[in-house]
Design a protein around this nucleic acid. Structure first.
Lengths: 140, 140
DNA sequence: GTAAATTTGCAACTAAGTTGCATTTGAGTA
DNA sequence: TACTCAAATGCAACTTAGTTGCAAATTTAC
């Protein structure tokens, strides 16, 4: 883990105004270093190489980061949440790619759908989420 | 449960070539009678009013229906699968509405996104799934 | 009506995520 | 630097959706 990820993570955590704890900083640094969305288990594996951290604590750290908009959660067909750092401000129309073989999740550029599929009468639109399924480069 | 749903269900199950069992027919009839996607638990509640059916059997019936393209499964943010009868042939660009208050899932008309968000080099597109989030008429 | 394969019911299991509570720690203050 | 206290952590126990293995029941073809 290069130092600059830890530095960047510390700064981001500090900036929330909440406590800048060891676990929060280490967890965020791990996510900053990743190109893809990670599951709780994958993060745990990466973090527990050098020091231990409790799985419940990690759940709570991730929950906290999500609430603070440092990361976003992606629901998968395997009933597992994946977490990805928020690089820029996400719009209300976000897109993900999911590899149907290795389940790896990659964030795509935001997009616009016009027109949206029309909603039943009385329904209120808030946001859209587009999931593109296929095979990633390593799985073809 | 009107008789015609049971008749329609029996015909659809027969048409697969596999065994037309009591549970398969009753389960499909229940889904045919619904406007919205249902969870395993919701289907169980509706089915167990008059006769009992084992929850594992229901999981297997739903799995079988999905494989036979009688229904499609929708993954939700609550880690629960929802099932909806396939009214017509679904395209490879399907859309759902999810109410963020009551979690009810409604199928929307299929749609086209052009252009698709561009994929990383070497990635292969297969299908898209659009989730529109907001509030349904009853929750506003 | 009988036989053979498929389906069902039951019990036990898996795995992600949650809750309650006692202990520890970050960070502001003396 | 030490002190304080709310916030964060670790641990054990729990919840819930979904899965697996196997013996018993059911469907359908003959």
């Amino acid at each position: 883990m290069p130092n600059n990820f830890l530095e960047k993570a510390r700064e981001l955590v500090r900036h929330t105004g909440d406590r800048a704890t060891h676990h929060r900083i280490r967890t965020l640094a791990t996510l900053l270093a990743e190109q893809h969305a990670l599951t709780h288990r994958e993060i745990e594996e990466r973090l527990n190489v050098k020091e231990q951290l409790d799985r419940v604590t990690l759940y709570r750290v991730l929950e906290w980061m999500s609430k603070k908009n440092l990361v976003h959660k992606i629901a998968g067909d395997d009933r597992v949440w994946r977490f990805r750092v928020n690089t820029e401000l996400h719009s209300h129309q976000h897109a993900h790619f999911v590899c149907t073989r290795c389940t790896k999740v990659t964030c795509l550029a935001d997009f616009k759908i016009k027109p949206l599929p029309s909603l039943p009468i009385g329904y209120l639109f808030h946001e859209t989420e587009l999931t593109v399924k296929g095979l990633c480069a390593e799985c073809i």
